[in-house]
Design a protein around this nucleic acid. Structure first.
Length: 806
RNA sequence: GCGGGUAUGGCGGAAUUGGCAGACGCGUAAGAUUCAGGUUCUUAUGAUCGCAAGGUUGUGCAGGUUCAAGUCCUGUUACCCGCACCA
């Protein structure tokens, strides 16, 4: 078959007949299938895109044939750094390159032959979209979920912008791998931490890969502990957070983060210089140095002392950058005997080390001893177990109003402002009189100006665009300035799934009534790399909008699937520098898109991916040829309608078994086994066809089923075959075959016969036979091997095997 | 360092959750069709011993539980992913 020609033919017919238009009247049967939208890079669609979109579309087609009204939209995450960096390099404006790339990718996406309804397309860089991204920002601001503060932030010196915590990987910028440094800057944050608990507990209900849920769980990082109030000699109060209140009698010093607000207040004049020097050193250290666990701990004495609330003991207050300002209270108690970090620190600075926990059996293990154990040298708590003591000590402190139980989360607020050009402008005005003034909703969008000098200089490019920056304050009418920053692109993608079904709405981001019916997304498919970024942000935004009254559901994506990674033929990640990139375009040119898609589905485990190998493509094409020949030789054949004999029953069994297996496999994204079952079915049809003189019309029904079963996998090919078989209706308006359970009941079954758990023979028994009858038949089958041994025990597993123990 | 995952023929990968390991495909070999190549069809194909019937062995490694282990338990190695001074 000339795949390329028929693919064009059917794509045109589908488009002309609007076959994949979503029918809103049928919304009660909706099934929202969403693939993560892609960034329109100049590098075209790669094998990874295909592996995401091809099989996902097959799933969508399968669900359509199951009777669902499938909604499967497509769009582009079009703002972002690469286009801007490309512009800096080449002088081509990001808008120009982005729109051009989108056009190319649309063409390639259409070549997949997917069921996207392009009427619902989204491009996040267009004003009719980012208007509502800005609207979202304003709602969050209105509800206290967007705020501005000065804080030490991650700064990428190469990208010249701040980064969210989630975008720092191993101390490096996720995008360009430059070591990230810390800077104190005033930035916009979203208060995702308000939702820490719900983001955590909501995971249980989600049908997501366990690994992804675990990653989010760890990222949120809930931990139970106690807060303990210390007082300095001079009466200043501060609080530490600890999960080991049981070790409090072992405190030999306390440490504040260098950025702790109390540091300047308590530092004695003699220590002033040392403390200032140390703080300067810390601010210079790159994040990668600071985070390195092998790095020697450093710190310095403030000159001040604190009083341990449990025993009144006076201990020195130090500052050290191993204490993080952003977690807990930014202050910790130093218990060197029972914490590795404190131990290393105390050893270096010659601080006393006092043991207060013994092992369970009272033994004295080496220090530091970080396990739970039994208290010692702890006044009235001596002899108590660590777990009891944590409760008891905290309770005692609580009575004195010096402590309390406390739950902490590692999750930080989401830093959303970026000092870059190609993004949605932050819809805020800074007025010298009125302060921060949100742009009135009627003035949205705040349009991103086109002519801007975006050469990087460490400041927001928009600052240099005077006609953008200068506005009149909407409150007092006096001259004011716009916010020069743009929003993190993850803000754009945090709500796009809500926009798709109502993408042309110019009155609101979406119509709540409609969206509450269309959402949540039923099946979300995309890469695993977004576990703690996009997937977390989207959950947060959904919950925030729900609490504002715009949505009535809690989670955006009920069921999530990650596709694996297709590696180069050498087993390495595909990359230009390695020269192991396989181009989908070349494959389609040679084989056609159906062959390519079927290859991706058959030769890889969908969630694992794996290395590319060319030979699989030929095998898949051979299989399709086999199917085509089968259709051609059966479609006009004269067939008998006599009752089923043994061969027909057998074929009918395979047929229904195939339908049942494939239905389950397609639902589970187990595409490779689905294809394998279909191949078995085709083999069985051939076997029947070749050996039967006067084939039954069952043969025709089987071939018809093959066309239906293969339709989601190779859509153009199936349409063509369906037409050849005389149908004038699209195969995608037909129903997927349904398994006839009666046909799966076999009269007899072959079982294995074991002697002492080793297979010695096989026999065929009636499925209706009792265990005793089966055992008797089995014994018959191995009578020779059994010899004169005595059977001590007989184990019969129905339909599987019989095991004689002799 | 902590958390998670993976390990099965020459290759990609299956295995109803403890019940015939290696489905399906690729590759390979032999044969048939063909002037020939390709296509197509048939058969074989984990390793090993054997002329054969048949035997032995086999799911990273070492133990264990069980009539029965790729699957469960203990320990261990390699690789991959995530987090990384979170008190």
């Amino acid at each position: 078959m000339d795949f390329k020609t028929i693919e064009k033919k059917w794509q045109k017919r589908w488009a002309d007949s609007k076959l994949y238009s979503f029918n809103k009247d049928n919304i009660s049967k909706k099934h929202y299938v969403l693939e993560m939208f892609s960034y329109p890079s100049g590098a075209k669609l790669h094998a990874g895109h295909w592996f995401n979109y091809g099989p996902a579309d097959s799933y969508a087609r399968f669900m359509r044939m199951q009777g669902y009204e499938v909604f499967q939209p497509m769009g582009f995450d079009a703002f972002g750094l690469p286009a801007e960096n490309y512009a800096i390099k080449t002088g081509i404006h990001p808008e120009e390159s982005t729109l051009k790339n989108i056009e190319t990718m649309e063409k390639q996406l259409k070549a997949i032959g997917a069921t996207y309804d392009w009427d619902y397309e989204i491009k996040t860089c267009m004003p009719d979209y980012y208007k509502w991204t800005q609207w979202l920002f304003l709602q969050l601001y209105k509800h206290g979920l967007a705020y501005r503060k000065e804080a030490p932030v991650n700064w990428c010196p190469s990208c010249n912008t701040v980064l969210a915590n989630e975008q720092v990987k191993e101390g490096e910028c996720e995008r360009c791998h430059t070591p990230v440094i810390r800077k104190n800057l005033t930035q916009w944050f979203f208060k995702i931490t308000d939702y820490s608990e719900e983001l955590l507990s909501g995971l249980d209900k989600l049908d997501w890969p366990e690994k992804t849920k675990l990653m989010q769980k760890n990222w949120i990082g809930k931990s139970f502990g106690s807060e303990v109030d210390f007082e300095t000699e001079s009466g200043e109060k501060f609080t530490v957070f600890t999960t080991r209140a049981d070790t409090i009698y072992g405190v030999s010093y306390v440490v504040l983060a260098p950025e702790h607000p109390l540091v300047d207040k308590i530092t004695t004049p003699e220590q002033k210089k040392a403390v200032e020097d140390y703080k300067y050193e810390c601010s210079k250290a790159s994040e990668i140095d600071r985070l390195s666990t092998t790095r020697e701990k450093s710190g310095t004495f403030t000159g001040a002392y604190a009083i341990n609330p449990v025993n009144g003991k006076k201990v020195p207050i130090l500052i050290a950058d191993y204490v993080l300002a952003s977690y807990g209270t930014g202050a910790v108690m130093g218990v060197p005997a029972h914490d590795e970090r404190d131990f290393a620190f105390a050893t270096k600075y010659n601080l006393p080390i006092t043991r207060v926990i013994k092992g369970e059996k009272g033994q004295n293990d080496e220090l530091p001893f970080c396990d739970y154990g039994v208290l010692t040298a702890s006044d009235e708590f001596d002899g108590m177990s660590s777990k009891e003591a944590i409760k008891a000590i905290t309770a005692k402190l609580e009575k004195q109003s010096k402590g309390r139980l406390k739950t902490n989360y590692r999750l930080r607020d989401w830093l959303v402002s970026r000092q870059r050009y190609w993004g949605a402008p932050i819809p805020v005005i800074h007025c010298p009189h009125c302060g921060i003034v949100p742009v009135p909703e009627k003035d949205l969008p705040v349009t991103l100006p086109h002519d801007v000098d975006f050469t990087p200089d460490g400041k927001s490019p928009l600052l240099k665009c005077e006609e953008f920056m200068n506005v009149t304050c909407p409150v007092c009418g006096k001259p004011a300035r716009r916010d020069p920053d743009t929003l993190d692109t993850f803000v754009c993608s945090s709500w796009y799934y809500l926009r798709y079904p109502d993408n042309k709405n110019d009155k609101a981001p979406f119509d709540s009534e409609l969206i509450n019916k269309m959402l949540p997304v039923d099946k979300y498919i995309g890469g695993a790399e977004h576990a703690c970024m996009h997937l977390l942000y989207a959950r947060f935004i959904t919950k925030a909008l729900r609490d504002m009254g715009y949505l009535n559901f809690d989670e955006p994506f009920l069921s999530l699937v990650h596709q694996g990674t297709i590696l180069g033929p050498d087993g390495n990640k595909m990359s230009k520098s390695r020269g192991n990139v396989v181009s989908p375009d070349d494959c389609i040119q040679k084989y056609g898109s159906d062959v390519f898609r079927l290859y991706l589905m058959f030769c890889f485990s969908y969630t694992e991916g794996g290395p590319w190998n060319d030979s699989g493509l030929d095998g898949v094409q051979r299989f399709m040829d086999r199917v085509e020949r089968l259709v051609d030789s059966v479609k006009d054949k004269k067939l008998s309608d006599s009752p089923f004999a043994k061969d027909e029953k057998e074929l009918n069994y395979v047929r229904n078994f195939t339908v049942k297996s494939m239905t389950a496999d397609m639902k589970n994204f187990s595409f490779n086994t689905a294809v394998a079952r279909l191949m078995e079915f085709v083999n069985a049809i051939y076997t029947y066809f070749n050996k039967t003189q006067n084939p039954n019309k069952l043969l025709y029904d089987c071939v018809k089923d093959v066309v239906l079963l293969i339709a989601p996998l190779t859509p153009h090919f199936a349409e063509e075959l369906n037409e050849r078989m005389g149908s004038t209706e699209s195969v995608f308006n037909m129903r997927y075959p349904v398994c006839d359970e009666k046909a799966l009941v076999k009269d007899e079954v072959e079982i294995a016969v074991q002697i002492n758990s080793k297979i010695k023979g096989k026999t065929t028994v009636s499925t209706a036979a009792s265990d005793e009858e089966v055992a008797a038949a089995a014994k018959e089958a191995v009578i020779e091997a059994l010899g004169d041994a005595t059977i001590k025990k007989t184990i019969v597993i129905k339909g599987r095997l019989v095991n004689f123990i002799v």
